[in-house]
Simulated assay, not measured.
Amino acid sequence: MSRDWQKDMELIKIGETSDIPYCISEFKNMLPYYHQQYAAEKARADKAERREQKLKWGYEIILSYVPIRTRKELGFEGFLPSLYPKEETKP
């Protein structure tokens, strides 16, 4: 099942001035679909975030074995901070 977002938004705008029973009927069809889409997108985003955290953790572990001087010479010191700006890394 798929829905056209633009048509649904137009229906909502029209619904403000049109037949209420018709709008309720259409909204009953819309809500489960968009709820399902939200749940699927949230699951995908959560999975991607867990994967990103594992990659970050792995990078930090591997980097801990590289001497500090070498890290600085190769430019590794600024790599993670460039991916995660300060506002994102604050606890």
Rank of each mutant, 00 (worst) to 15 (best):
M30S: 05
Y84S: 02
V66H: 10
Y34P: 03
F79G: 01
A45E: 05
F79S: 01
K7R: 12
K86I: 03
R50G: 03
Y33M: 00
P91I: 05
F79N: 05
Y84L: 03
I24Q: 09
P91E: 05
Y38W: 11
I24V: 12
L11E: 14
L11T: 14
K7G: 09
I61E: 06
A40D: 14
Y34T: 06
Y22N: 12
E87P: 01
A40H: 09
I62C: 04
Q53W: 01
R3I: 05
M9D: 10
G78Y: 07
L80V: 02
E87D: 08
S2H: 14
A39Y: 05
D19H: 14
Q36V: 06
E87L: 00
E73A: 15
P21T: 07
K28V: 10
D8H: 06
Q36T: 11
P85Q: 01
F79M: 13
V66E: 11
G75K: 14
E49P: 03
Y22P: 01
I20N: 09
K42R: 10
Q53P: 00
I61W: 05
V66S: 11
E73M: 15
E26Y: 06
C23D: 09
I14S: 08
K28L: 08
Q37E: 13
L74S: 05
K72Y: 07
G58K: 05
Y84I: 00
K47H: 10
T70A: 15
S25R: 08
D8S: 04
D4L: 07
I12E: 14
E52R: 04
R50L: 07
K90Q: 01
P21V: 02
D8E: 08
R3L: 12
R44P: 06
S2W: 11
E26V: 11
H35A: 13
K47S: 09
I20A: 13
I68V: 15
P67H: 14
Y33P: 06
D8R: 03
E52C: 00
I20K: 13
S64Q: 08
S64T: 04
C23S: 12
L63K: 14
I12T: 13
S2T: 15
E41P: 02
A48E: 06
K86F: 00
P67V: 11
A48D: 04
D4V: 07
A45K: 07
E73P: 09
G15N: 03
P91T: 01
E77I: 10
Q53M: 01
E26G: 03
F79C: 07
K47N: 07
S18I: 08
Y84P: 00
L80T: 02
S64D: 07
Y33I: 04
G75I: 13
Q36K: 14
S25Q: 10
E87Q: 01
A43S: 09
C23K: 10
P67L: 14
A39L: 10
L63D: 10
R51G: 02
F27D: 01
R50A: 08
K90R: 04
D46E: 13
T17S: 14
A40E: 13
Y65E: 08
R3N: 07
E73W: 15
E88C: 02
L80S: 04
W5I: 12
Y38C: 05
Y65W: 12
Y84G: 00
M30D: 01
E88I: 00
S18G: 09
A40Y: 06
F27S: 08
